[in-house]
Design a protein around this nucleic acid. Structure first.
Lengths: 148, 148
DNA sequence: GTTCCTGCAAAAGATTTGCAGTGAC
DNA sequence: GTCACTGCAAATCTTTTGCAGGAAC
């Protein structure tokens, strides 16, 4: 899967280049960080991870970069509570999925379910809206918090 | 339905009283406003509607009142983008539902679907989380925005 | 050399908190 | 009279914007 992972980064960079953007260190650092994640990150988490790791990037730049990437369709926003927007890659090594949120500790896990997708696809036809996207969040207690 | 509507307000007031809260004009105004709504409102919308209508309530009080009501289970938070938390009544005259969001104009509509509920209920058994709640948001273009 | 990218600092928007006065019981 | 409720103002937190210097082409 190392191949697929690398492909998301280069795919995104290609899309950026095609859209007339130049290369830059901050953007590359954000792309690589996002590519390594199992699940969606908030801007502040991205900032902290970058500060701890490869290269510090200013918060304003992170916001700007994420906005560009979202516009190009390389990442998507997910809103799962905690009053913070989160972002995650689209395509690449990860598939379409939804989220489980532990309301006690805040842990986030991805899950996916074909039956759910079929149900939503069918439902989308019956609804007074031309549906382009959907989001499902299950709230509850994770194994750790439940056993405590 | 006037009966059911009134019942949500008095039910919530009863729950508040049981929890040791006293009555107050600001809280009553918020309860009645929420009760009349078709769908979830943000704090700022609540503030504007109250200012225009029955009684002005300070923003800080609205936040505090909503927090209490959420803790008591009389209302629920929904997060549907637009970087703003929204709240709506639970129980009362309205049933469990989910949301359609027009990404162009921001309009919000409720919908519900029994098949979706069954699918999610089944799914909730298979997931590494003790599920207590769920939220589904469909994004797209509403009839108005689509035809334009 | 021109234009875009980036960081810094300030601004804006949403939410929370501290405190003092009023009102419920 | 006591303690909760409320409004105001200040503080906090997230996100956006303006501007100037540096980097990509």
């Amino acid at each position: 899967m190392a191949r697929a992972k690398h492909d998301w980064v280069s795919g995104a960079e290609q899309a950026l280049a095609d859209a007339g953007y130049r290369r830059g260190g901050a953007r590359r650092a954000v792309l690589e960080l996002l590519n390594e994640q199992a699940c969606a990150l908030s801007v502040l988490e991205i900032e902290d991870l970058l500060r701890a790791g490869e290269r510090r990037v200013s918060r304003a730049s992170i916001y700007r970069i994420l906005e560009e990437l979202e516009r190009l369709g390389a990442i998507q926003r997910v809103e799962i509570g905690q009053s913070m927007v989160r972002y995650e890659t689209i395509g690449g090594s990860k598939h379409h999925h939804h989220h489980l949120v532990c309301d006690h500790c805040g842990v986030l896990q991805p899950f996916s379910d074909p039956e759910l997708e079929r149900t939503i696809a069918r439902l989308s036809e019956r609804v007074p809206l031309v549906v382009s996207d959907h989001e499902v969040v299950l709230h509850g207690a994770c194994a750790d918090c439940e056993s405590r």
